[in-house]
Every structure is written in structure tokens, then in C-alpha cells.
Design a protein around this nucleic acid. Structure first.
Length: 431
RNA sequence: GGCGGGUUGCCCGAGCGGCCAAUGGGAGCGGACUGUAAAUCCGUCGGCACAGCCUACGAAGGUUCGAAUCCUUCACCCGCCA
């Protein structure tokens, strides 16, 4: 059994943990059952959550037994955010998100289980044991083990108490539910380790404490660091939009492009965290980046590995090909209908029927800009391109000559935002 | 409970009867440079049927030819005194 703690440390995946010697010993003694929970606060997980899967996968590779929890119950309550009270989501919505997230997340651990004979993950939903919990059970069996003083001292709670927003009893109680999850998983599956983001540290240790106190067993906790970009913003935001793991929300192409566009400083910092390559290769890539930044070696490695992990080999190939086609120096018309079509379908496209709209209207319809005003402004600023030619008149209508093989127009905003326009009834597959 | 100050565009923050879609900074976006990077410089930054119009300055009313700017009420925040 490999020393997984060393790997996690080397990759910078551990921000804090409970008694590390004890944890090391437990991991060395045999398969440990461990879990990580994800609350359904959106239809999909995003790039930031990926880090948790890196930890889950490393432990799985080391022979341990993963459990993935999707918080159908805790998602209805909401954990306290630093800033303000959460808006409660509708139960039906949360239930739908639970399903959707679980389906998307399966390959991360199921694939290694199938291909490398590792332990297959268990999927659980805390709604299963939280929904039947009565108010009496909650107050008698759980509440007695929680000291209000300790609960108030948790960072997330304390911050909110001192803020203008204050905190509702609902969110204050969140830690009890998450702690109960840990105990429940211990009872049901012998789970003794929980991992999560460092923002969850208070909740995680609440669970470990509960298991120790009521079950007399040792339970461990592991937290990953909070990852930010060099300029302090959250990972996984482009143009204000979140980079999701669900291909319906963020196309594999956009996902691939996100990683490729990461700046040098971040790419070097993130590579060890997100790459499962051997240490030597990671170091070589970083050295390569310092020597020849233009090659963007760490960015490419991240884009390839993570797109393959999240979307699979086929989608990776297509995203790569699309990027090459659209950013390459080749003449667009020379690309051929097949390549062009595939690239633009990846990048995002709309179909027009009947008369061709103006360039400004097309920019808006493809989502490249938010409004017609913005479209006109973009053209005025010289940031709009039709088939790689700068557009000077927002009201111009693309002519017959502009349509590329397969019935396509390539619309671009700035350097990297590309979208396709397809003429309805063109030969070939429809979008 | 009393007195005073505040609530402005994504954020911070000027404006205090017409010249205000609203100074300035930040973020964002575009251009130049470059490497689909960073830094820097320049431009831009509510919407639309775009030389015009519509919507906006906590909410609702009012005064006025005309209000973000004055008055009234309400909501929330922040100080000082009890």
C-alpha cells in the first residue's frame, strides 16, 4: 500500500488534518472507508469541486473505500456562508440536482474501480437518514452532544454572528446535520475519515468529534486548501461565469479552453494539485513553463488531463481539434465542412432560418454579447470578427460569399470567444 | 427613548434643482504589445426601434416648466446621548 499521505502532501492537497500520525497509521493498517460530501446548491458541481475528487481518487488508488455523499438533506438547509443567509431552494429542485450531480460524478471513481480493480465507490444521500429524523430524535439523540459554546465558536458561525446579516437558527443547525452524516456513515459502513474543503473544517471536525464521543471510535478529518487565482479570485470563473462539470452547462470545449487560458502563475501552482502525473513529470512541466512560457506546458497538461477525466477521451479529442481549428492560422475555408462543423458545435452555435440577420444581431444571438448595444460597441471597438476578418459595420449583413463550407459563419469576439452560425437546411448533421 | 448621519450604476464612491445615464477608482469587456499568459498603454463600460427615446440614483407619494438633488411618509443601516 503506497503512502498516500505523502502523495497528498507533495501535491499540496492537505491544508489541515486531525492527528496525522494516527491517520497515517490507520491508512497503513488496511483499507479505510472515507467520504466526502457535496451539497446540491446548483444543478452541477464546478471546477472547484474537482479538488475534492483528486483527494478521493488518491485514497481510492491507495486501496481505500470511497463513499460519495450528495446532500439531499443538507442541501435543503444550507451551510452558513461568510457573507449572508442563503435562499432556500425548493425540495423538488434539490432532489433533481442530487440526481443530476450524482450521475455526472460517477466516472471519477467508477472508472478506476472498473479499470484498475480498485474499490467501487458507494453513493449515499443524507436525505435517507435525515428525513426520518424526528424533532425529538434530533434534540435528544443529537442535540445533547453539541455544546452551544463550541457551535458558536465555529468560524462560519462566529463570522455571521458578527456580521450585519446575522444567522438563522436553520443555518446555525447545519453543523449538527453534517456531523450526524459522519456518524451515520460510521454506523452503516464503518466510515472513519471525512475529507472536504477547508471551509468545511468546522463541520468536518464536528462530525469526527461526534463519532469519537458517541461511538468510541477514532475518526479522522482531512481538509484541502482553498484554491484561488493569483489575483485572489475564486478558481473556475471566466467572464464572471462559473465553469461547470456538466457538459450541458459548460461545453467540453469551453472547459478545455478554461484550463488552457489559465495564467502562468496559477497553472504552475495548480498543476500538482490537479495532475495525477508522477512528481517528476509535474516538476518537468513547471520547469518547462519557466523556460518557455509560450508553450504553456502546464496549461496543456491540465486541460488534457482534466477534460479527459471529466468528459472522457472522445470529448477531449474534439475539444482539442476544435481549439486547433479555431485558433490555428489555417484559412477557415480550407478547414473543410466536417472539421469546421465539429469545432463550431463544440464552441457553441446557433442556426438561422430565412434571412440572415445583421452582424450585431448575430453576435447577440450567439451569446457572444449580452445585448445589441454591446454588440454595436464591440464592433466600434474593433473586437468583432466574421470569419477572422474584423467587422467595421455592425449593421452589415453577411453576404453569400461569407458562408463557409457546410453553411457556416464563424463569429468571434475578442481573441478567444468564438461561436458558429449555421444556415438552416445546410447539408450535413444538424446541431 | 432622544439627537445626528446615511441608503447612488457589478463593487467602492462623488454629485446636493436644469449643462446627470450621472466625476473618479476597481472589476469586466475590446484594441495595441505578446504566447489564447502577466504587466503596461489606449478605448469602452444601463437598454432600445440609437444624432432620438426608455428605464435608473432605498420604497411610495408630493412641490416644480424641470428632481439623484427640495418636502412628506415608510423601510433598512451607522454613530452619539440615555
Amino acid at each position: 500500500m503506497t503512502d498516500v499521505m505523502s502523495e497528498l502532501h507533495r501535491r499540496g492537497l492537505i491544508a489541515q488534518s486531525t492527528d496525522e500520525d494516527a491517520l497515517r497509521a490507520a491508512l497503513a493498517a488496511g483499507p479505510v472507508t472515507y467520504y466526502c460530501g457535496f451539497d446540491p446548491t446548483a444543478p452541477s458541481l464546478h471546477v472547484g469541486h474537482l479538488l475534492q475528487f483528486m483527494v478521493l481518487r488518491a485514497l481510492q488508488r491507495a486501496g481505500h473505500q470511497p463513499i460519495v455523499l450528495v446532500g439531499g438533506a443538507t442541501g435543503l438547509i444550507g451551510d452558513p456562508r461568510m457573507s449572508s443567509e442563503r435562499v432556500l431552494n425548493d425540495p423538488a429542485t434539490v432532489a433533481a440536482w442530487v440526481d443530476r450531480i450524482r450521475r455526472r460524478v460517477a466516472p471519477f471513481l467508477d472508472r478506476p474501480a472498473a479499470e484498475q480493480g480498485l474499490r467501487a465507490p458507494l453513493y449515499v444521500d443524507n436525505l435517507d437518514w435525515t428525513a426520518p429524523l424526528s424533532a425529538i430524535d434530533l434534540l435528544r439523540d443529537l442535540g445533547k452532544h453539541f455544546r452551544v459554546g463550541r457551535m458558536l465558536a465555529k468560524e462560519a458561525v462566529a463570522a455571521r454572528l458578527n456580521s450585519e446579516a446575522g444567522i438563522s437558527y436553520t443555518e446555525f443547525s447545519y453543523q449538527i446535520l453534517q456531523a450526524n452524516d459522519f456518524r451515520e456513515l460510521f454506523r452503516r459502513h464503518g466510515c472513519t475519515l471525512q475529507s472536504g474543503g477547508s471551509d468545511q473544517w468546522g463541520n468536518i471536525t464536528a462530525g469526527a468529534d461526534l463519532v469519537r464521543r458517541t461511538e468510541g471510535a477514532s475518526a479522522h478529518a482531512l481538509a484541502t486548501p482553498l484554491i484561488t487565482t493569483a489575483d485572489g479570485t475564486k478558481i473556475g470563473k471566466t467572464e464572471g461565469a462559473t465553469v461547470w462539470l456538466d457538459p450541458e452547462l459548460t461545453s467540453p470545449y469551453a472547459f478545455f479552453q478554461y484550463w488552457l487560458g489559465v495564467d502562468d502563475v496559477d497553472a504552475r501552482a495548480w498543476l500538482p494539485l490537479f495532475s495525477e502525473r508522477p512528481a517528476g513529470e509535474v516538476e518537468a512541466l513547471i520547469a518547462e513553463s519557466e523556460a518557455r512560457p509560450a508553450a504553456r506546458a502546464p496549461q496543456r497538461a491540465l486541460a488534457e488531463e482534466l477534460t479527459r477525466l471529466v468528459h472522457g477521451e472522445d470529448e477531449l479529442r474534439q475539444a482539442e481539434a476544435a481549439g486547433r481549428a479555431l485558433f490555428g492560422r489555417d484559412d477557415l475555408a480550407a478547414l473543410g465542412a466536417e472539421t469546421l462543423g465539429a469545432a463550431l458545435r463544440e464552441a457553441g452555435s446557433v442556426t438561422v432560418d430565412g434571412g440572415t440577420p445583421t452582424v450585431a444581431a448575430l453576435l447577440q444571438q450567439t451569446g457572444l454579447v449580452a445585448s445589441l448595444s454591446e454588440a454595436r460597441r464591440t464592433v466600434r471597438e474593433g473586437g468583432a470578427y466574421l470569419n477572422n476578418q474584423r467587422v467595421t459595420d455592425a449593421e452589415a449583413v453577411p453576404g453569400e460569399d461569407d458562408w463557409l463550407p457546410g453553411g457556416w459563419l464563424v463569429l468571434r469576439r475578442g481573441k478567444r470567444s468564438v461561436a458558429g452560425v449555421r444556415r438552416a437546411g445546410s447539408p450535413g448533421r444538424d446541431t
